[in-house]
């Protein structure tokens, strides 16, 4: 997109070379106006199409804080937190195994990651759920013995399915983080007489966190959404409750909107948390920490008021 610069301007009127601020006529980006118009038109068409549908919008606020929905939100959050905990702990263990000099542990970690990343999580959930068909009992010799069907509750199925799958992804994220720290850091710590463990805890991991936190935030948000799959193995969470209400109340599509709205709210809250955690681990890596959104708002207000003073 090239636009001719204004060559007709009087050369006498051009600012003389010197410390005077440049006052040039900006380039007009006509292409931007056109593309903005097209985008707006498409958006309007989609909104119009939805306004023509027979959607009972009132049903969404009516059920928004329904007891069953709130229970569902709670269970979704619980499942997200617990699965991520399993995923993170498992991921750290796998990453350390994978990076260890022991070829056996390293190979086992490789195999685990290969298997759990290479199969769909929905298939894994069904496998956990239906293992009762091939194992009648669970028998942890001296500690515990029970029928498989009693042992493998929907919650445990969901946790194992989501958590073990997540561990494979977290392992790769942690490994990338540990590898991202410059080798000179390990050498400097060792040269000071620090042990391997201390070096890892005090020097490597805090720096690796900068690389680990952003993708882990994505994983948490992804996990929150993936929990909707576990309705397939009889665990009731937000999506399942919304579906149930939809069938009873005769407003199924509206209840899907409601569920979508709740997922959006939850993921938005999580993104804000992620921003602050990232900011914490950016200490020392940037000369000045980026301002928090609140500081940014305050900054803008200050600049407005100072502009008034100078004007």
């Amino acid at each position: 997109m090239t636009v001719d610069i204004d060559k007709t301007a009087d050369p006498q009127g051009a600012p003389p070379a010197g410390p005077q601020a440049i006052k040039a006529i900006p380039v007009r980006h006509y292409g931007r106006y056109v593309s903005a118009l097209i985008a707006l038109a498409i958006l309007a068409a989609i909104l119009y199409a939805f306004s023509q549908g027979k959607i009972n919008w009132q049903a969404v606020p009516d059920y928004f804080f329904d007891d069953r929905i709130m229970t569902g939100v709670g269970k979704t959050l619980l499942l997200t937190v617990l699965s991520m905990l399993i995923g993170i702990v498992g991921g750290i263990i796998l990453a350390v195994m994978r990076l260890s000099k022991n070829p056996v542990t390293s190979a086992i970690a490789w195999f685990y990651i290969w298997f759990f990343r290479g199969t769909p999580v929905l298939v894994q959930l069904f496998v956990w759920f239906n293992l009762g068909l091939v194992f009648e009992y669970i028998n942890l010799m001296p500690f515990y013995k029970d029928y498989w069907s009693n042992f493998m509750t929907p919650l445990l199925t969901a946790l194992l399915g989501l958590g073990l799958n997540e561990a494979a992804y977290m392992a790769e994220i942690c490994r990338a983080g540990l590898l991202s720290v410059d080798e000179g850091q390990t050498e400097a710590a060792h040269a000071l007489g620090m042990s391997h463990g201390k070096t890892l805890r005090r020097i490597i991991i805090p720096q690796a966190m900068r690389v680990i936190v952003p993708p882990t935030g994505n994983e948490v948000i992804n996990m929150l959404k993936t929990t909707s799959l576990v309705s397939a193995v009889q665990f009731s969470e937000l999506f399942r409750y919304a579906q149930d209400i939809g069938q009873i109340s005769g407003a199924p599509v509206e209840m899907y909107f409601l569920a979508a709205a709740w997922y959006l709210i939850l993921t938005s809250v999580l993104s804000v948390g992620q921003y602050y955690i990232e900011r914490y681990y950016a200490r020392g890596s940037t000369r000045n920490l980026p301002p928090t959104p609140w500081q940014r708002v305050k900054g803008h207000l200050m600049s407005f008021s100072s502009r008034k003073v100078t004007a």
């Binding site: 400097a188 720096q207 681990y281």
Partner: peptide, 21 residues
């Protein structure tokens, strides 16, 4: 590690710990 305590080392690329003051 015990023996390294008695030997200080200074590197070409400094290798300060960037997350600490």
């Amino acid at each position: 590690a015990m023996k390294r305590r008695n030997i200080g080392m200074v590197f070409q690329r400094f290798n300060l710990f960037p997350h600490m003051t």
